[in-house]
């Protein structure tokens, strides 16, 4: 059997045949074809979800994305700092309450754990409150934490708003 791929191709000229082939035209399906197709096509997400995703995608695009991320991260960092500060401020009360409850349930173990917890909480509160006081703020630490926060937020947003995976070949 002859190998088709080895057959030399001679581009022939036949105006008559070309003219005949030019008479072949495209046919049109029945009216309403478009609607019938769209009725059966599932949209990947509901409209509100697509809008939200599109908005998020728009927000994280290019320089605009970084500006928004930096501002949001600053707000997030301030909120987290406030929450940690408040937690540390009231940690003594919390640990005391916890100590009482634990001692009633599992006495020997709870006493040891509560003692260690109290010790740690006291040390942490002392150091954090000291750092936030007039003794001086550890700016390097705050800056590093802030940069890490911006990076993590950027990564998370980009993962959440990236286009769907392309799995199959065309």
């Amino acid at each position: 059997m002859r190998d088709d791929t080895m057959t030399p191709y001679q581009p022939e000229s036949d105006p008559g045949l070309d003219h005949d082939l030019a008479a072949l035209e495209r046919f049109t399906p029945k009216p309403g074809f478009e609607s019938r197709v769209l009725d059966s096509v599932r949209h990947p997400l509901p409209a509100w979800a697509r809008r939200t995703r599109d908005t998020l995608r728009w927000m994280v695009t290019g320089v605009r994305g970084w500006v928004i991320l930096v501002c949001c991260s600053a707000a997030t960092a301030a909120t987290v700092a406030l929450a940690v500060g408040a937690g540390v401020r009231f940690s003594n009360y919390t640990s005391r309450g916890g100590e009482l409850v634990l001692s009633e349930v599992i006495e020997p173990a709870s006493r040891g754990a509560a003692a260690v917890g109290t010790e740690l909480a006291n040390e942490l509160s002392t150091s954090v409150l000291g750092a936030l006081g007039t003794a001086g703020i550890p700016w390097q630490g705050v800056a590093i934490a802030y940069v890490v926060l911006v990076g993590v937020s950027a990564l998370a947003l980009r993962i959440l708003t990236r286009p769907p995976q392309r799995r199959f070949d065309a």
Partner: peptide, 29 residues
């Protein structure tokens, strides 16, 4: 039959539009 199969073709293509790889021509697909 051509209507049905054309419709099926479009439904298949549009339902899997996420899997289309842009390095290929859409018309070929």
């Amino acid at each position: 039959l051509a209507e049905d199969l054309s419709q099926e073709t479009f439904i298949k293509v549009l339902n899997h539009i996420d899997s289309y790889r842009p390095e290929h021509k859409f018309s070929s697909w």
